[in-house]
C-alpha cells in the first residue's frame, strides 16, 4: 500500500506536485493518468525516495521507502528505461543490483526468463531497442520479488505482444495481493489494465476512483446499438438524460443508459437488437473532460485531431 499525504514538490517557482494525497491499495492495479508535466514521474520519484518532497510525506506499507530494511524486496520500480549504464550487459546490471540484497543468481535468471530477455542478457544494453530496455527495467523491478511494484509508462515502446504481456503480468501480480501502481498515457490500455484510476493534472489530483466510475460517472457511457428498427427504438429510449444519435441506417449510439436498460426496452417492445457494444474508449473522453483545464502544454491543435496528441505521457 502506498500512501501520499499532502505530497508537494516545488522546483524554483514552479510547483510540479501541489499537495497531493492518495492511497494505492494492495491487490489491484492502480493506474496513474495525466498529461505531460502533470507530475506523475515526480510523484513516483518521491515515492522511491529519489526526490525529496518539498512538503508532505509518502509511505510504502506504512514506512518511508528509505527506512525499509530491504528496499528492493519491498518495492520494485521501473522509473525510467534508461536507469542503466548502457555499456554494461543486462545480466551484469541485474547482478550488481541483486548483490546489494544478496538476491541469488537463480532469481536473476528467473526474471530474465520472465521478461523474455534470455537471448540478449549477455549483450550490452547500448544495443537494446526501447522495448528491450523496458523489459530490462521491469526485470529489475521484479528482482526482489517485491510487494509493491511501480511502473512508469511500462508499455512505452513495447510491441503488441509485449503490451499484452505487461497487461497480463500486472494483473497477475495484483491478483497475488501485491500493490501495483502504473502510469501510462495510453488510456485504452489503462481501461483494459487498471482497476482503479488516479488522474493528475498540473500537480493536483483530479479524480481518484474505480475505473468504472470514471468512465460512467460523468454520463459518458455510450453504447453502440444495431437494430433493424432504429426509429422505433429511438422513440422507446427517448427519456430524460438519454440521448440517441443515429449514426448509420441501422446503427445508433446511446448515451445515458446502460446496455442492460437498452436491451430491456427493446425486449419489452419486441424490437430486435443485433449489437450492443459498450464503448470503452469513452475513458479517453472522460479523461479529456477531466483534464481539459489542466493540460500544461496545450498543443493548439484544431478539434478533430487525434486526442492522444494532447495527452502524451512523460
Amino acid at each position: 500500500m502506498i500512501e501520499a499525504k499532502g505530497l508537494t514538490k516545488v522546483y524554483g517557482d514552479k510547483t510540479a506536485v501541489g499537495g497531493v494525497s492518495f492511497t494505492v491499495q494492495a491487490g489491484q492495479v492502480t493506474g496513474f493518468l495525466g498529461p505531460n508535466g502533470a507530475g506523475k514521474s515526480t510523484t513516483m520519484r518521491m515515492i522511491m525516495g529519489l526526490d525529496a518532497p518539498t512538503a508532505g510525506s509518502v509511505t510504502v506499507n506504512g514506512v518511508p521507502f528509505a527506512k525499509h530494511v530491504a528496499p528492493l524486496r519491498e518495492i520494485g520500480a521501473l522509473l525510467d528505461a534508461k536507469a542503466v549504464h548502457a555499456s554494461r550487459t543486462a545480466y551484469n546490471h541485474l547482478l550488481a543490483m541483486a548483490a546489494t540484497h544478496s538476491i541469488p543468481k537463480k532469481r536473476i535468471h528467473e526474471v530474465i526468463e520472465m521478461t523474455g530477455l534470455g537471448d540478449v542478457a549477455k549483450k550490452k544494453v547500448k544495443g537494446f531497442s526501447l522495448g528491450m530496455g523496458q523489459r530490462l527495467g521491469i526485470a529489475a523491478a521484479l528482482l526482489g520479488d517485491p510487494q509493491t511494484i511501480i511502473l512508469d509508462e511500462p508499455v512505452n515502446g513495447l510491441d503488441p505482444e509485449g503490451v499484452v504481456w505487461v497487461r497480463n503480468l500486472v494483473k497477475y501480480l495484483a491478483s497475488e495481493g501485491r500493490t501495483v501502481f502504473l502510469s501510462s498515457h495510453l488510456m485504452s490500455e489503462m481501461a483494459l489494465t487498471a482497476d482503479h484510476l488516479i488522474v493528475i493534472g498540473r500537480g493536483k489530483i483530479i479524480a481518484d476512483a474505480p475505473i468504472r466510475d470514471i468512465i460512467t460517472g460523468k454520463g459518458h457511457a455510450r453504447t453502440r446499438v444495431r437494430t433493424d428498427q432504429p426509429e422505433r427504438l429511438m422513440q422507446l429510449l427517448a427519456a430524460n438524460g438519454v440521448s440517441v444519435e443515429a449514426q448509420d441506417r441501422e446503427l445508433l449510439e446511446v448515451t445515458g443508459l446502460d446496455p442492460r436498460g437498452i436491451a430491456r426496452a427493446a425486449l419489452d417492445h419486441q424490437v430486435m437488437v443485433y449489437e450492443l457494444t459498450p464503448l470503452q474508449a469513452s475513458l479517453e473522453e472522460a479523461y479529456m473532460e477531466l483534464t481539459k483545464d489542466e493540460v500544461e502544454y496545450h498543443s493548439h491543435i484544431t478539434t478533430g485531431a487525434p486526442v492522444s496528441a494532447q495527452a502524451g505521457g512523460n
Partner: peptide
C-alpha cells in the same frame, strides 16, 4: 495480503 518473507537488505 501478500507478505514477502523479509530477506537480507543492503
Amino acid at each position: 495480503s501478500f507478505r514477502n518473507a523479509v530477506g537480507p537488505g543492503p
